[in-house]
């Protein structure tokens, strides 16, 4: 049964990768690289793990998802539209004037739990939600996704210290470790070092996975959501920036650049040709 779920999720991720490319192509603006690296985990979250209600986006007992790396808005919008939080026709208005879908998410978009765009601000916000949920004895988890370039922000570590100090085992952070940031390889811009050791030293549960292997994603999310040992959990998700489109993979030039006509066609073709069985 688990195997069927994994296959379904892989198929969904493929569909949404195409959607991401289309959204950014239509807008001729946006961030494909990080959206493509994060989408597998987001699919794992929204189609397997998160307890949410599309009819009641602010349902008090929902699981929350804080997308700290807000520039990956095409990924979350593709997911939310597909889930039915808002009509798919909204995707055409991405980044356009007088339309709902802003360049970086805003709280007035149904299904959005955090207005990102400024890196380093998601974990502390998620931490605040987690404190409130614990006070209210809600049976839910708060998930937050950050990037590896983002881990260069000092606030990430302030919040990581505080989440452990406040024993927030309802907080789960996913580090989308896609190795590349705007101007080059993360290792060369500012190496964030051994993040497993770092978060362990901060008092967190650490789970490390290949973030493009859906079976690992599902297993890690299941494990993290049940870890109730008075510690927050981080999933180090090893990914590839631009995953699924050969010329975008690990290419920092596609951090924040839209594909042109040829590139868009090629990208869609490539994604379409991915063999689900071989897809890792």
């Amino acid at each position: 049964m688990q195997k069927d779920i994994v296959l379904e999720l892989k198929q969904k991720a493929k569909e949404l990768r195409k959607e991401i490319i289309t959204i950014i192509y239509n807008a001729q603006s946006g961030h494909p690289g990080g959206s493509l690296s994060a989408i597998d985990v987001m699919v794992g979250l929204y189609y397997h793990k998160l307890k949410v209600d599309t009819k009641n986006p602010l349902w008090e007992n929902r699981d929350r998802f804080v997308l700290s790396k807000g520039h990956c808005s095409p990924a979350i919008y593709a997911v939310l539209a597909d889930k039915g939080f808002f009509p798919k026709s909204e995707l055409e208005g991405y980044r356009k004037i007088n339309r709902m879908l802003q360049g970086h998410p805003e709280l007035n978009t149904p299904g959005i739990d955090f207005a990102g765009g400024a890196l380093g601000q998601g974990i502390c916000f998620a931490l605040g939600i987690a404190l409130a949920c614990r006070l209210d004895k809600r049976n839910c988890n708060v998930y937050a996704m950050i990037g590896d370039g983002e881990a260069q922000e000092g606030a990430v570590w302030e919040s990581s210290m505080a989440a452990a100090f406040h024993k927030l085992d309802n907080l789960i952070v996913i580090l989308d470790k896609n190795q590349v940031q705007q101007t080059g390889k993360t290792k060369e811009i500012m190496d964030i070092g051994n993040v497993t050791m770092k978060w362990k030293a901060f008092g967190w549960n650490v789970i490390e996975i290949n973030g493009h292997d859906m079976a690992q994603v599902v297993k890690a999310l299941d494990k993290a959501s049940k870890m109730k040992n008075k510690r927050p959990t981080i999933i180090i998700s090893n990914t590839i920036k631009g995953k699924g489109v050969s010329f975008m993979e690990l290419n920092h030039k596609f951090h924040g650049k839209a594909p042109n006509d040829d590139e868009c066609r090629k990208a869609i073709e490539e994604i379409g040709n991915i063999d689900v069985k071989k897809f890792k």
């Binding site: 008090e60 709280l107 380093g120 601000q121 502390c124 916000f125 931490l127 006070l135 302030e158």
Partner: peptide
């Protein structure tokens, strides 16, 4: 139980306060 010591970390304090407010608390 309703007071949160955030240490000498003002950014984190403000972000956490915002998350609490988003969840209906009055921080």
């Amino acid at each position: 139980e309703r007071f949160f010591s955030m240490g000498i970390a003002e950014q984190d304090m403000i972000g956490a306060a915002a998350g609490l407010a988003f969840s209906g608390k009055i921080p």
